[in-house]
Design a protein around this nucleic acid. Structure first.
Lengths: 132, 132
DNA sequence: GTGGATGCAAAGGATTTGCACCATT
DNA sequence: AATGGTGCAAATCCTTTGCATCCAC
């Protein structure tokens, strides 16, 4: 990533909005409001670059398209098993119980996704479903 | 899943081998040793069914095809960032530090993937890479 | 014999890529 | 002007599906 471009700036701006976790498609639609003819390829290329650069993060929920987010501070994600909504979760310490793991994982990196109904869905009385 | 079939039996047998985490493709090749003309569609259909039935599990590593495993006991997975090898990890208690999370996640389900070099790769001196 | 399971091939969705042109430095 | 970025469309990869046939019950 050496040069600047209107497109990348616009993409980054979308991801810098608070609490959003858009898919590439979502980003495309949002950016098109400003630059009507951006292409999906460009969005993907830039999202990749920004990830590499550590400026944004990818959030993967099984069986769904990748989501991206711009909040650089380390935090977790929770997905609602009913509606699929993703929300940020801010842990107060290490969310992994190292004590419960073999020595060799004392410092290991991890991907942790919480699965828990969102407020809206908690009201209704539904049975848990997806992600597998 | 109501009837039995040679194909499903064979697929299940592959997954019941200790410590394997094959992709659908891997399962196909293995099953073909016994039933040369199984199709990939059949493999996927049966893997899905067996997952639904809770007899096997799906393991998702970002950017890679799904892997499957037959060990029904609750455990974690660790992926090697260098070679992609997946190994089983048996925690001694709840691997999630509930104390570090907001109240509402006290009982939440989760997906946790550890990222840590395997023995072979620990010897070599490589820089961490993938999964994003 | 009935309806679930199969094999095949085609379709599908998400993401990547090749290429000629455009734009930033 | 050099070379990285873009738009477009085609390609790729993994997975799912439609359909005629097969086979377990």
């Amino acid at each position: 990533m050496q040069r600047r471009s209107r497109q990348r700036d616009a993409i980054l701006k979308v991801l810098e909005m608070e609490g959003v976790h858009p898919t590439a498609e979502d980003v495309l639609l949002e950016v098109r409001k400003e630059i009507p003819n951006v292409s999906l390829g460009t969005v993907y290329r830039n999202l990749d670059q920004l990830c590499e650069a550590g400026m944004i993060w990818k959030v993967q929920v099984e069986g769904e398209p990748c989501r991206y987010e711009g909040n650089p501070d380390r935090h977790l994600h929770a997905v609602c098993p009913f509606c699929g909504e993703i929300r940020d979760v801010w842990p107060s310490g290490d969310p992994v119980s190292r004590d419960s793991l073999p020595e060799e994982f004392a410092e290991a990196e991890y991907r942790l996704l919480l699965i828990s109904p969102c407020k809206k869905c908690r009201r209704k009385d539904l049975k848990p479903a997806g992600p597998t």
